[in-house]
């Protein structure tokens, strides 16, 4: 398999200039994700108003796959309600882990570029870390930092 299948232009672009890469001034919901295997660490920040995601951003360090996944995730989430966000999590999760899963580009948009990660079992956690962190942040309505570890 060509390495460009994994590192597609969108992924390279989002790694080089991640979108919504910031810590908001006031924090509504937040969680921290950590992958002890590679040292990837990121925070996902969410603002939820009237059940809709009105702001979403992230901050952290990681490989190209993890940064691009988080960056594209923040773009996709904006404006979604919580159940839409959960449905998207579930689609992405299936895309990354189920070999027979047919990717629907209409639903997943740019995120479909992560489909090849499935062929690299050691890298699946890189792509999924931000998504697990998102789920923790969604549920985290208190002020405490929720912690997610991939191990």
């Amino acid at each position: 398999m060509d390495i460009r299948q994994l590192y597609q232009d969108v992924i390279v672009d989002h790694n080089r200039s991640p979108r919504n890469f910031r810590r908001p001034e006031t924090i509504d919901r937040v969680a921290e994700g950590f992958n002890p295997l590679c040292g990837d660490k990121l925070h996902v920040y969410l603002s939820v108003t009237d059940g809709k995601i009105t702001d979403v951003s992230f901050k952290g360090s990681g490989c190209a796959i993890s940064i691009a996944s988080a960056s594209m995730m923040t773009e996709a989430l904006l404006g979604m309600d919580e159940s839409e966000a959960e449905a998207l999590f579930s689609d992405v999760h299936r895309m990354l882990t189920e070999s027979g899963f047919a990717v629907d580009p209409a639903k997943l948009g740019k995120l479909a570029s992560l489909a090849s990660v499935r062929e690299y079992p050691t890298r699946v956690k890189c792509a999924s870390l931000c998504w697990h962190t998102l789920m923790a942040a969604l549920m985290n309505t208190g002020a405490e930092l929720a912690l997610v570890s991939t191990e």
Binding site: Y7, G39, G62, A64, T122
Partner: peptide
């Protein structure tokens, strides 16, 4: 610079080169 060790490890593997990346 600009290349995370983890990505380097995967790309090196495509060249047949087995290196360790991480802590």
């Amino acid at each position: 610079d600009g290349v995370h060790p983890h990505d380097l490890g995967t790309i090196a593997d495509h060249h047949g080169v087995a290196i360790r990346t991480g802590h």
